[in-house]
Design a binder for these strands. Structure first.
Lengths: 352, 352
DNA sequence: TTGAAAGCGATACCAT
DNA sequence: ATGGTATCGCTTTCAA
């Protein structure tokens, strides 16, 4: 019956303790601490003082139970150990933190089962909302739960999505290659059902078509799109396949694929950019360190994280559903040394 | 007064609803669902069925309030966007998930203030325990809260820590250099107050001393330890400083420092390993892709995450404090091409 | 402005 | 084995 906590699980003190010490009712103490409702300035001060002296801390569970909101939002991503997502997650976390939300992280492991499991977790925890990097292109979030999709979006517009404008970005990147004189291109893309892969391929095709390159022609001017597994191995294997009939430049539409190309090129003794030009996607730190630096389209990952957080907070705030939109943020093409400038002479259309 | 939830925050149904539908008391329903206490098999089935048909989901807040434990554990790390930590975090998360815990992530931003703020967050949420990558070498976790330190440990042993055996690992790495014939070494280390930096430097010194190299001598056999900022810039700047009096091999004791060395070497036109050998720490994916591959000591990050999770779960389970220990896990030296084998002839002790 | 009291939803104790 | 009930700590009417 002492005031010493029976175990480490017990709260140091409760609102009732604070109220008692301050000589007020719990209602008043609650208002003083939460700042909701009228409290005499002097009374508030007494309460705050009492709270401080007791080391009082509001019990989140009790609050959540009563308020019917947890002040926790979930983040569902395919893989915590992937700098592409964590680049957004870092900003997202700080933005959410500033708004008084905590971040519950669950990984979906890039599988539909994993995704289902993660949804269960989120629902079980009664999170107030979820930022979701979708795995299943046809999946839909549980109805009624505020959700913002990040990075990828599902086929049906079931939630607001914050994505990079990959179509424009990759098109610009591709144009850069073409402007540099390349007329024989190969693009490497990952799993075709994901919105990101689709859009990246679309951006590439659009720019290549516009420049008059012909898909799958047997000689320049031409372009090819090679679909492969979304990994370094996939990238290397894809280059293996086109190896007998090399383009002058390849666009690897993910950093993993860039790795694969690099590994393959290294193994073959091909030099970049002398023997083959390379452009990538994303911008992990090593792109800039690599000799030559990797020219790339970098999605605005940090900004995307920020927007996703703000969008989710707004959605949670609204009582009724808000219209689902797709927010496309522009990225940046970063030109480095991996793309060779082709001297403007050779080819069939010299006219000296 | 309908059964439609008044808002999306309202639970679809409560235990009372389930109990009513199944024609039992709430107590029985609770026991049937939680699996604690006696329930007739047939009754349990009825309850489960009712729960399923109502889409019942236990309310986490109510449960936490009553049980006095949240089933949530915190993860505090300096920077979410750092593959060194997330490599552990991914495993940690899945291990925790399997044990029925959710992960609340907070970043400390590598500052003491940020760390304080993160502790507040954890305490406010009444997490059951915390996995903590410490920033302040002299900090102490809040008393009474189960904490496992990951990766680094604070000066005073206030909590169990799961770390990599960097002393042994870096010593082995250094021996590898020496065995390859290098007798003029430079080690680059980061902020000296962190346990990791200390231990890495110690491992280096130990191996160098044992091989008879002399610290700060003006010619081989010698070694130097350069302390610098824990970043690519720091690494490059450090090499700038030693540039006029190059060693034959440098050991960069973090992947950021490796980047710095690589960038500097590239800018100087120095070739690795012909002009300078390089060994690193950690093993980001690009180490293996780089030409030549980066020889390195790789801490067992995944295993560390696993152990930290298990250790924390065990600590939470114990009613009374368990002894704080430091668990050192062995990593692995991965030999690749960045270290040159020095031909065994030059030097003073040739004896034909 | 303030205090009293009614829940929020689940668990666990105590009879039955 | 089961049902009722007190309880966790807080927010929020409702009167005063």
């Amino acid at each position: 019956m002492s005031t010493i906590p029976a175990s480490r699980f017990d709260p140091v003190s409760t609102l009732a303790d604070v109220a008692r010490l301050a000589g007020v009712g719990v209602g008043t103490a609650s208002r003083a601490i939460s700042g909701n409702g009228y409290v005499d300035v002097e009374t508030r001060l007494r309460v705050l003082e009492a709270a401080a002296s007791l080391g009082y801390r509001r019990n989140a569970a009790a609050r959540a139970l009563r308020e019917r909101r947890s002040h926790v939002v979930g983040l569902m991503l395919p893989d915590i150990h992937n700098e592409f997502y964590t680049a957004s997650a870092a900003v997202l976390q700080s933005e959410l933190d500033a708004a008084g939300y905590q971040l519950l992280v669950a990984s979906t492991g890039n599988s539909i089962d994993g995704e289902r499991h993660a949804w269960e977790t989120m629902l079980d925890r009664q999170v107030d909302g979820v930022v979701h990097v979708p795995v299943d292109p046809d999946g839909a979030p549980p109805p009624g739960l505020p959700v913002v999709q990040l990075n990828r979006h599902t086929r049906t517009a079931t939630a607001t999505a914050v994505v990079s404008d990959d179509v424009a970005g990759v098109a610009e990147l591709t144009r850069h290659l073409i402007d540099a004189g390349h007329t024989d291109l190969v693009a490497l893309v990952g799993a075709p059902r994901l919105s990101t892969s689709d859009e990246r391929a679309t951006g590439f095709r659009r720019a290549a078509d516009a420049a008059g390159l012909v898909e799958n022609a047997s000689a320049a001017p031409r372009y090819r799109v090679v679909v492969t597994e979304f990994s370094a191995d996939g990238g290397a294997e894809a280059m293996e396949r086109v190896g007998h009939d090399l383009p002058t430049a390849v666009v690897a539409l993910s950093s993993r694929l860039v790795m694969g190309v690099l590994r393959w090129a290294g193994a073959c003794g091909l030099r970049i950019p002398d023997d083959l030009s390379l452009a990538g996607l994303g911008d992990p730190e090593w792109y800039a360190i690599w000799r030559p630096g990797i020219t790339t389209f970098a999605p605005p990952l940090a900004e995307m994280g920020r927007r996703a957080a703000l969008e989710l907070i707004a959605t949670i705030g609204e009582t009724n559903a808000r219209p689902t939109t797709t927010i496309r943020l522009a990225g940046e093409v970063r030109k480095r040394g991996s793309v060779r400038i082709v001297p403007h002479d050779g080819g069939s259309n010299c006219r000296t």
